[in-house]
């Protein structure tokens, strides 16, 4: 199964793709935390945080257009804030600051996931001692989410072909029937999957062939990332 949304850059060969997922996860989440904990952006921070994103995007070979598309996910909240600002004390600067923080966070997460295959991320989470049960559920969801999605699309297409032009409230009722069919298919598939897994000697945990190794390049990435981040956050530039 190909997850087109994030797998398009998975097989590229760039410095970012070779890094240990743990180091990318650490630096990425730290970047998000530092940005969110910045009370109000100074001009240096307002230019510095996006500059760090641009550097990371250049190292990852990710096109900026792809990052821009992902900013659409915050549009409903941005619009809500815009409407609500008419009734509250939220200033334009504060509103723009919130949007800026949201964009930095989305860009950082996007870059992390575009350069890290999800199975590698699961292995990293497992090595970071996240509960094994949680990691296993995540692995199942990643593996079967796409398969079930394809089932769902087939059901949706068949249903749309029979149902054009009808009253939309009734469409929602029929969505229930579609989902019930999908649920039963999923359940029966899960039973077969589990039997196959047991036959192959299933043991809980994230499956993957890549062994994680924290090397010299990771040390440089983490130290460099921390230094740049600290410089933007706390540096005094005249």
């Amino acid at each position: 199964m190909t997850h087109q949304w994030h797998d398009s850059y998975r097989h590229q060969i760039t410095p970012a793709h070779h890094l240990d997922p743990r180091s990318k996860l650490f630096v990425g989440l730290l970047f998000i935390a530092v940005v969110l904990l910045t009370p109000r952006f100074t001009p240096v921070q307002a230019a510095g945080y996006p500059a760090l994103i641009l550097i990371a995007a250049a190292l990852s070979g990710v096109r900026l257009r792809l990052l821009a598309v992902r900013f659409l996910t915050i549009m409903p909240f941005a619009l809500l804030m815009g409407v609500s600002a008419l009734f509250s004390h939220l200033s334009h600067q504060e509103w723009l600051g919130m949007l800026g923080k949201a964009m930095c966070s989305i860009a950082a997460m996007s870059l992390l996931m575009l350069t890290t295959p999800f199975p590698d991320l699961l292995r990293a989470l497992e090595q970071l001692h996240l509960p094994r049960l949680l990691v296993m559920f995540l692995a199942f969801l990643y593996r079967y989410g796409g398969v079930l999605y394809e089932d769902a699309v087939h059901l949706e297409r068949a249903w749309a072909a029979r149902y054009f032009g009808r009253f939309w409230l009734r469409q929602w009722a029929h969505l229930g029937n579609i989902l019930a069919a999908l649920f039963i298919r999923s359940y029966e598939r899960a039973e077969r999957v589990f039997a196959a897994m047991q036959a192959r000697g299933f043991s809980s945990g994230a499956a993957g062939v890549r062994l994680l190794h924290f090397g010299f390049s990771d040390a440089i990435f983490v130290c460099g990332g921390l230094l740049l981040l600290a410089a933007v956050r706390w540096g005094r530039f005249s």
């Binding site: 296993m136 989410g145 079930l148 089932d151 769902a152 939309w168 999957v193």
Partner: peptide, 25 residues
């Protein structure tokens, strides 16, 4: 133990179910 993969696939079901968009207005 048998229920654990089932729950994983059920999570995938909720995930896939959320992907079906229905017109509102």
């Amino acid at each position: 133990e048998k229920a654990i993969p089932l729950m994983g696939v059920l999570a995938a079901f909720i995930f896939a179910g959320q992907m079906i968009n229905i017109p509102v207005a």
